[in-house]
Design a protein around this nucleic acid. Structure first.
Lengths: 218, 218
DNA sequence: GTCTATAGACTGATAGAC
DNA sequence: GTCTATCAGTCTATAGAC
């Protein structure tokens, strides 16, 4: 209370939290160590004292942020106790809450994924396939065989689900500008999507896909 | 032919094209004027001779790229001679071709939109509304009144269309890694989406939305 | 128009006092 | 652990020769 400046947590934690904010909003190259020093309220030299280098600090932040983003995505697929549609509803519900709390996360992760795709495997440990993938593939196949869902490539579904959930946060400044909404109004629309996206996905999966070169006469 | 180096077009055009490639793949901060000099094969000093400053060159590239991205989006809405569904089909078809030719465009534009949203209005001249918006709003309202489409907020539809079309290009490294596809195979899936996205959108728009707090018994 | 050389400013990192 | 002072390297931009 009587200290020069009031902070939460240790100096190291303050730097890390400030670095997360600055790195995720400006990226590695546009961020100066002086920005992080100012944002955290600590002396410039302490950043190197605690984290050795700007690059090292960035990698720590980056791995944590990418994992936060991806674990929720793979979490969509990993629970073996629920049906495909149920795990979709639960996952999207939690995911939209997480995105409202971290609106800058998707664009940061997408940049990292595009600029340094090798880090996905090397630093984050995000390999080609995992147990969750195999399970969801089995579940998917069974439903397709039973005729409960349309025979489309799972990547199309995954793309659509993640796109409809995540993209409105990436393009928020564009879509909000276009519709003249406030941040609060926009977030309320995102909350509506918790119910709408699972409904749309279910609709897509259960409506017959038109044959190529045939008019759609349903 | 007998010149020291063989180039296409004028020095100025070479610099500009190289700058487009480097800026769109690395962003403003991570790009050095030396990178552009090397990429274009011209002397470092000529960049300032032709474009005065790195920032000025960036702004020229940025405005062109954002317009390339946005004109196709607003072009979805602007043709008064076609139905809603038809203009959707045509626009998505052309847009996916453009994205396959410019896969790095969406992430570049999304970064600009997130980091400098004021440039949308100040430099690109992308205002809140235009004639096309008013027309599509009228068309939308008529179809809703006639019961031809579900009464959902147009922003949900726009978000979904743009998301399903654009997001697979933003998340390409992630989704490709996950599915173990080659670039060629991935692009073929994008071409499939030319037919699939309009079909999905039509399905979404014509399937009744479940009432809140009521179980979906269709 | 094109080149070399360099000015002038900024950045990441550290030495050394406290 | 925290601070000040500063170094060494890099960057954009330009002066001036050709």
């Amino acid at each position: 209370m009587a200290a020069k400046k009031q902070h939460n947590g240790s100096t190291e934690a303050q730097i890390k939290e400030a670095a997360r904010r600055v790195f995720t909003s400006k990226g590695f190259a546009a961020t100066r160590t002086r920005d992080i020093a100012e944002e955290s309220g600590v002396n410039l030299a302490l950043i190197n004292y605690y984290f050795r280098s700007k690059e090292n600090l960035y990698n720590i932040i980056m791995v944590e942020q990418v994992q936060l983003f991806l674990h929720s995505v793979t979490g969509i697929l990993n629970d073996p106790t629920t049906t495909l549609f149920t795990k979709l509803e639960i996952a999207i519900d939690h995911y939209i809450d997480m995105l409202i709390a971290n609106p800058g996360l998707p664009i940061f992760v997408m940049n990292e994924v595009n600029n340094n795709p090798e880090n996905l495997v090397d630093k984050v440990g995000f390999g080609n396939h995992n147990a969750g993938d195999l399970f969801i593939a089995k579940q998917w196949l069974e439903m397709t065989m039973a005729g409960e869902i349309q025979p489309i490539h799972p990547l199309h579904l995954i793309s659509n689900v993640v796109a409809m959930t995540v993209f409105p946060f990436i393009a928020a400044p564009l879509l909000r500008n276009r519709s003249g909404m406030s941040v609060k109004e926009y977030n309320e629309m995102m909350l509506q999507r918790k119910k709408l996206i699972p409904h749309w996905v279910k609709t897509i999966l259960t409506t017959p896909v038109p044959e190529p070169n045939k008019p759609d006469r349903s």
